[in-house]
Design a protein around this nucleic acid. Structure first.
Lengths: 193, 193
DNA sequence: GTCTATATATTGATAGAC
DNA sequence: GTCTATCAATATATAGAC
C-alpha cells in the first residue's frame, strides 16, 4: 500500500478504515483514514461531501453489523426469551469493544445534522430488532420495554466504556468476562422489572 | 474580564474553567481554557508543565467534588444501606452530567502517564468511600463487592453517556428522571446479587 | 507571572493538474 | 477519481520581553 494506490471501491474502503481507526484509537479524522489507505487527504472528498457524511456512513455500517452480530448471538442462545435478551447484551459489548463503534458512534450528536436515509434505516432496524427481544420476555409493549432496553444499553455501554478506558486491567479481565457480566446484569434487569 | 486580566490564583481558576468547558462542550483544550479566562495561551504553562498535568489536576478536583456530593446525598438518604447505595448512584449521574467530568475524565487513559500524588489520593478516597457503601449492604468484602461496584458504575456511566449524547430527548427526560432510573437500577443490582 | 510572538503539527476543506 | 498544493483554523508548547 505504498504510493499511487488505486482502489476499486474507495468509498467502502474509507468506511472500513474508519472503523479500524476507531477500534485502535477511539478517535476519527478524515486525514488519518486517508493516510491509512495510502491515498491523499483530498481523495475522501470525492466520495463524501464532508467529514460528517463519512462518519454517518460509518455509523450506518456499524448499525448493520451490530444488528447482524446480535441476531447471530441470539440465534445460538436457544428459545428462552431471557437467554436471548442476555445474549444480545453480550453481543453488544463484544462488537462495541472490538470495533470502537458502539452507540456513541452510531447515535453520535455530531450526526444530528446529517440527513442519511441509509443510516436512519439501519438504526431503526437495529432498534426494532432489539425491541422485539424485549417484548418477547413479556414486558408490556411500551413503558416497561422502553425502560428495560434503556437499562440494558446503559449497562452494556457503561461496561464498554470502562473497559476501553482501561478502568479494568485488561490483562486480568478478558473481553469474554465483560460480556458475561453484561449478560448476567441483563438477566437481573429482566427479573427485577 | 477583558484584557490585562490578572489573577490571584490562576492555577485554581484554570481548573475551574476546565470543568466549565467540559460541562459545556465535553471537550478540553488548554487554549480554550486560557481564552475563557482572558489570559494568553502561554499563561497556563507557568502553572502546569503540559496539557496532561492540567487535566490531572482537573481529575483530582472532580474526584474530590464527586466524593463530597456522594457523601452529602448518602447522608440524607437515611439508614438503610440499600437506600444509601442507590443514592450514591443517583449522585454520580447528577455530578457527571452537570460537570462533564465523570469517570471518563477522572480515570482517563490520557492520565496514565502522569504521576500526580494529589490525584491518586483523591481517586483512592473516592473509591474507598464507594466500597464502604457496598460492604454495608452485606456483600462479601472482595468478590461480590467488586462486581457490584463495577455494575453500578457501568449502569450510571452508561446512563450519563446516553443522556449527554442526546440518545434521550432531553426535553421529555429531565436529569432527575435519569437519576431516579440509576437509583432504581442500583436497587435491582443489590437485590440480584 | 503574564505578555507577545513564534515554531510546529494536525485538522477539514478546496482549486486545479493529470 | 486521484493527485499535488494550498488555505485557514486550531492545537501544544517554547523563547524572550516586561
Amino acid at each position: 500500500m505504498a504510493r499511487g494506490y488505486h482502489h476499486g471501491d474507495l468509498r467502502a474502503a474509507l468506511v472500513r478504515a474508519s472503523l479500524e481507526l476507531l477500534a485502535e484509537t477511539g478517535a476519527f479524522s478524515v486525514a488519518q483514514v486517508a493516510r491509512r489507505l495510502g491515498v491523499s487527504t483530498a481523495a475522501p472528498y470525492r466520495h463524501f461531501p464532508d467529514r460528517e457524511h463519512l462518519l454517518s456512513a460509518v455509523a450506518a455500517t456499524a448499525a448493520g453489523e451490530m444488528a447482524a452480530e446480535i441476531a447471530a448471538a441470539v440465534a445460538t442462545a436457544g428459545d428462552d426469551p431471557v437467554d436471548r435478551f442476555a445474549a444480545a447484551g453480550a453481543a453488544y459489548v463484544r462488537y462495541a469493544v472490538r470495533t470502537g463503534a458502539g452507540f456513541t458512534v452510531i447515535f453520535s450528536t455530531e450526526l444530528s445534522g446529517v440527513r442519511d436515509e441509509t443510516r436512519t434505516a439501519a438504526t431503526r432496524a437495529l432498534m426494532e430488532q432489539w425491541m422485539d427481544l424485549i417484548t418477547a420476555t413479556g414486558a408490556r409493549p411500551t413503558a416497561d420495554s422502553l425502560h428495560l432496553i434503556e437499562e440494558q444499553i446503559a449497562l452494556a455501554q457503561g461496561y464498554t466504556m470502562l473497559y476501553t478506558q482501561g478502568f479494568f486491567h485488561r490483562s486480568s479481565m478478558p473481553l469474554e468476562e465483560i460480556a458475561g457480566r453484561v449478560a448476567m446484569g441483563s438477566r437481573r434487569l429482566v427479573a427485577g422489572s
